Amino acid sequence: MSQTPDNWRKSSRSSNQTNCVEVGRVNDGAAVRDTKDRSAGYFTTTGQQWAAFIDAVKNQRFD
């Protein structure tokens, strides 16, 4: 079942930067889009995929 993302938000660490992403809510997951080109669309993840991504970021697996 598809859902339009809502409650878009940008990280508070982004301040006034323009090269950021925003995260929105969809059913049991998240949607992600580029703040510089919102009209380009977004991609979605399941809740499990999003949780795994956040865990990887917190554990610095992308550094």
Rank of each mutant, 00 (worst) to 15 (best):
Asn59Phe: 03
Val32Cys: 05
Ala40Val: 00
Ser12Thr: 13
Arg33Glu: 00
Arg25His: 09
Phe53Gly: 06
Arg33Cys: 07
Gly24Cys: 01
Thr4Gln: 13
Gly41Cys: 07
Asp55Gln: 13
Ser39Gly: 07
Lys10Thr: 15
Asp28Tyr: 07
Ala30Tyr: 02
Ile54Gln: 00
Ser15Ala: 14
Arg13Leu: 02
Pro5Leu: 04
Gln17Pro: 05
Ala56Gln: 05
Glu22Ser: 08
Thr44Phe: 02
Gln17Glu: 14
Asp6Ile: 15
Arg33Val: 07
Asn27Gly: 14
Met1Gly: 14
Thr18Glu: 15
Thr45His: 05
Ser39Trp: 00
Ala51Gln: 13
Thr18Gly: 15
Val32Arg: 06
Asp37Pro: 00
Asp37Met: 09
Phe43Gln: 02
Pro5Gly: 04
Phe43Pro: 03
Arg38Ala: 05
Ala51Asn: 14
Ala31Gln: 04
Ser12Leu: 05
Tyr42Val: 05
Ser2Pro: 08
Trp50Glu: 05
Thr4Pro: 03
Thr46Trp: 12
Ala31Tyr: 03
Gly24Thr: 08
Asp55Met: 02
Gly47Asn: 10
Lys58Trp: 01
Cys20Ile: 03
Asp28Gly: 11
Asn16Ala: 15
Ala51Trp: 00
Gln49Met: 01
Ala31Glu: 08
Ala40His: 07
Ser39Arg: 01
Ala31Pro: 06
Thr46Asn: 14
Arg33Gln: 10
Ser12His: 04
Ser14Lys: 07
Trp8Val: 01
Asp28Val: 14
Ala56Ile: 09
Arg9Tyr: 05
Asp37Tyr: 14
Arg61Ile: 00
Thr18Asn: 15
Ser15Thr: 13
Arg9Glu: 11
Arg38Trp: 02
Asp37Leu: 08
Asp28Ser: 13
Ser2Leu: 06
Ala52Leu: 07
Ser11Lys: 04
Arg9Leu: 07
Arg9Cys: 07
Ala56Tyr: 03
Lys36Asp: 06
Ala40Gly: 12
Lys58Ile: 03
Asp55Leu: 04
Gln60Val: 09
Asn19Phe: 12
Gln3Asn: 12
Gln3Tyr: 06
Arg25Cys: 11
Arg25Ser: 14
Gln3Cys: 10
Glu22Asp: 11
Ser39His: 04
Ala40Arg: 13
Gly41Tyr: 01
Lys36Gln: 15
Lys36Glu: 12
Val57Arg: 03
Asp55Pro: 00
Val21Asn: 05
Ser12Tyr: 02
Tyr42Ser: 12
Gln60Ser: 11
Gln17Cys: 13
